[in-house]
Simulated assay, not measured.
Amino acid sequence: MTKMRDLHWKRIVAGGVVTHVISMGVLVAVIVGYSLVGTAGSGGKPDQLAIQQFSMVSGALLFPALTILITGVSAAWVAREVKSRTATSHGAGVGIVVGTLGLAFGALDLTMLVRFVTTVVAGVLGAKVHLALSVE
């Protein structure tokens, strides 16, 4: 059984925070790209309503999906530097950090609960995939 002192908390927190930073950066880049393409296509005058609608949809769909995917990758990154017996716990830790950050920025409803659980599962799966692919 993994004890709390066996976990590398700096790596877990770093993996969780970096996941959100990357997800937010990609979301901003996608929205800015859409705005630039829309502005060029309309002769220089941006359609504010279209940009706002795109931002809302991409924020509601793209950001959570991307965050969950990147959580798995971050958990695998964290798991590569730890003992194999603690890798799954580290993955769960990354998922919990990412999920908690998501809860801090969203409404506390059933959708956020599902995202939280899915994010933790993605962290565990990321660590397990890393273990399956690594040969010790």
Score class of each variant (00 low, 15 high):
residue 64 P to H: 06
residue 103 L to T: 08
residue 32 V to R: 14
residue 118 T to C: 15
residue 76 A to S: 04
residue 24 M to W: 15
residue 2 T to M: 08
residue 71 T to D: 05
residue 27 L to E: 05
residue 119 T to D: 04
residue 83 K to T: 08
residue 132 A to M: 01
residue 92 A to V: 14
residue 103 L to R: 04
residue 103 L to E: 11
residue 21 V to H: 12
residue 63 F to Q: 04
residue 128 K to F: 07
residue 44 G to W: 09
residue 88 T to Q: 06
residue 29 A to H: 01
residue 91 G to I: 00
residue 16 G to I: 03
residue 67 T to Y: 06
residue 42 S to N: 15
residue 68 I to V: 10
residue 93 G to V: 01
residue 63 F to L: 08
residue 81 E to I: 07
residue 115 R to D: 11
residue 41 G to P: 08
residue 85 R to L: 04
residue 18 V to K: 11
residue 91 G to Y: 02
residue 52 Q to Y: 13
residue 39 T to P: 00
residue 130 H to G: 03
residue 42 S to A: 15
residue 57 V to R: 13
residue 9 W to D: 13
residue 75 A to T: 05
residue 65 A to Q: 10
residue 104 A to R: 12
residue 74 S to E: 02
residue 47 D to R: 10
residue 82 V to P: 01
residue 30 V to R: 00
residue 18 V to W: 09
residue 98 V to E: 02
residue 13 V to M: 12
residue 43 G to S: 11
residue 79 A to W: 01
residue 17 V to K: 01
residue 113 L to H: 08
residue 75 A to D: 05
residue 3 K to Q: 11
residue 119 T to F: 01
residue 89 S to Y: 11
residue 61 L to S: 14
residue 119 T to I: 06
residue 89 S to C: 14
residue 10 K to T: 14
residue 124 V to Y: 03
residue 67 T to F: 02
residue 43 G to L: 02
residue 43 G to Q: 09
residue 20 H to K: 15
residue 66 L to E: 08
residue 71 T to Y: 06
residue 60 A to Y: 06
residue 124 V to P: 01
residue 82 V to M: 02
residue 129 V to S: 07
residue 5 R to Q: 12
residue 131 L to G: 05
residue 43 G to M: 03
residue 121 V to P: 00
residue 98 V to I: 06
residue 44 G to F: 01
residue 6 D to L: 03
residue 132 A to Y: 03
residue 69 L to M: 12
residue 41 G to T: 15
residue 65 A to H: 07
residue 27 L to N: 09
residue 7 L to N: 02
residue 42 S to W: 06
residue 1 M to R: 07
residue 107 A to C: 07
residue 7 L to K: 00
residue 85 R to H: 09
residue 28 V to Y: 11
residue 45 K to V: 15
residue 38 G to F: 01
residue 77 W to G: 04
residue 21 V to I: 14
residue 79 A to L: 04
residue 40 A to F: 00
residue 9 W to A: 11
residue 112 M to P: 15
